[in-house]
Amino acid sequence: MILMNQLISALLQVGLLMAIPFLYYVCSRRAFSGFFSWIGLKIGKGLPLKWMFILFTAIGLGVFIPYLWLYQTGCLTYSGFVVDSFLESGWSVQNILILVLWACIQTALSEEIFFRGFLLELFGQWINWGWANLLQATIFGLIHCFSVLNQSIGPIFLVVGLTAGIGWTLGWLKKTKSDGSLFAGILIHAGANLLSTVLVFCFLL
């Protein structure tokens, strides 16, 4: 039942964050064709493996100590049925599937579609892509402040800054190294989610 709830939740989030840019695209261009390419759901010229490795390593090293401090000081906690299910039955097959759905589909896929796909392209129609990338990254960082909204300014600034930095990096990767494709960013985002969650489950819960 928990696995089904996670699957439904993930699909609903992807559906919603895909529907918004799709409706914008159809209404503004009065056409369906070209949507997936416009938003970045395309293969491109191949994955920039070197840059993916560099950025994944940099993101991992750059956020590990700050987030470790946030968890150890109680400024940031994991909650939800992913955590509840893990605390109840540990590394079961069901919980691994739940974690993969959450990390890869509900967050990585949906967020890359909406922020690096939709918002970056939308803002890029009005301003140059560098400012567009900064703007989508800032919004991406700000929505993550809700996880530490009841904390002091320090943890809030840290979470927003780190998350915005990741958002900017993935936007840069899409535009300059991935031929406009989201797939490299989705893989990095999913990998970072999986790694951070496994570390939390193994050492901090």
Results as ranks from 00 to 15, higher is better:
Asn193Met: 09
Trp51Asn: 14
Trp129Cys: 07
Ile43Leu: 14
Phe201Gln: 10
Ile188Thr: 00
Leu101Val: 07
Trp126Gly: 10
Ile156Ser: 04
Pro66Asn: 10
Thr176Phe: 15
Thr163Pro: 01
Leu119Glu: 02
Lys175Gln: 13
Leu68Pro: 00
Tyr71Trp: 15
Ala19Arg: 03
Ala137Pro: 00
Leu194Lys: 05
Ser9Glu: 09
Leu41Asn: 07
Leu205Asp: 10
Phe56Gln: 12
Cys104Ser: 07
Leu173Asp: 02
Ser178Gly: 10
Ser89Asp: 13
Phe146His: 12
Thr138Asn: 07
Leu182Met: 06
Leu49Tyr: 13
Leu205Ile: 13
Ala58His: 06
Leu122Asp: 05
Val148Phe: 00
Met18Asp: 08
Leu87Met: 13
Ile54Pro: 00
Trp38His: 08
Gln136Arg: 09
Phe146Asn: 10
Phe114Arg: 00
Asn95Trp: 00
Met4Asn: 07
Gln6Val: 12
Leu55Met: 13
Glu88Thr: 13
Phe203Gln: 03
Leu61Glu: 02
Ile59His: 07
Gly117Met: 02
Leu187Ile: 15
Gly34Trp: 02
Ile20Met: 11
Leu101Glu: 05
Ile39Val: 15
Ala10His: 11
Asn95Leu: 00
Gln94Gly: 15
Leu47Cys: 09
Glu88Asn: 14
Gly80Gln: 07
Gly180Ile: 09
Arg116Met: 02
Ile2Val: 12
Ser79Val: 06
Ile54Val: 15
Val100Trp: 03
Cys104Ala: 10
Leu17Val: 09
Leu7Asp: 03
Leu122Gln: 04
Gly130Met: 12
Thr197Tyr: 01
Ile98His: 00
His144Pro: 12
Leu205Cys: 12
Glu111Ser: 11
Lys174Leu: 06
Glu112Cys: 11
Ala190Lys: 07
Trp172Asn: 00
Lys175Glu: 12
Arg29Tyr: 12
Val148Ala: 02
Gly167Ile: 04
Ser37Pro: 01
Ile20Asn: 02
Phe157Asn: 05
Val82Tyr: 02
Ala58Lys: 04
Tyr67Thr: 11
Leu87Phe: 09
Ile127Gly: 08
Met18Thr: 14
Ser196Tyr: 09
Ile105His: 04
Leu41Pro: 01
Tyr78His: 13
Asn133His: 06
Thr57Val: 15
Gly171Ala: 09
Met4Tyr: 13
Leu97Arg: 05
Asn133Gly: 15
Ala31Ile: 07
Val198Lys: 01
Leu23Ser: 14
Pro48Thr: 10
Gln151Val: 03
Gln94Ser: 15
Asn150Arg: 09
Leu194Asp: 00
Ile20Phe: 07
Phe81Gln: 06
Met4Phe: 13
Ile188Ala: 01
Leu3Phe: 01
Leu99Asn: 00
Leu87Glu: 15
Ile105Lys: 03
Gly130Leu: 13
Val82Arg: 00
Gly161Trp: 01
Phe115Gln: 02
Ile20Ser: 05
Ser178Glu: 06
Phe203His: 09
Gly60Pro: 01
Val93Asn: 14
Ile156Cys: 05
Pro155Trp: 05
Phe36Asn: 00
Leu11Ser: 11
Val83Pro: 02
Lys174His: 04
Thr176Asn: 13
Ile39Thr: 02
Thr107Pro: 02
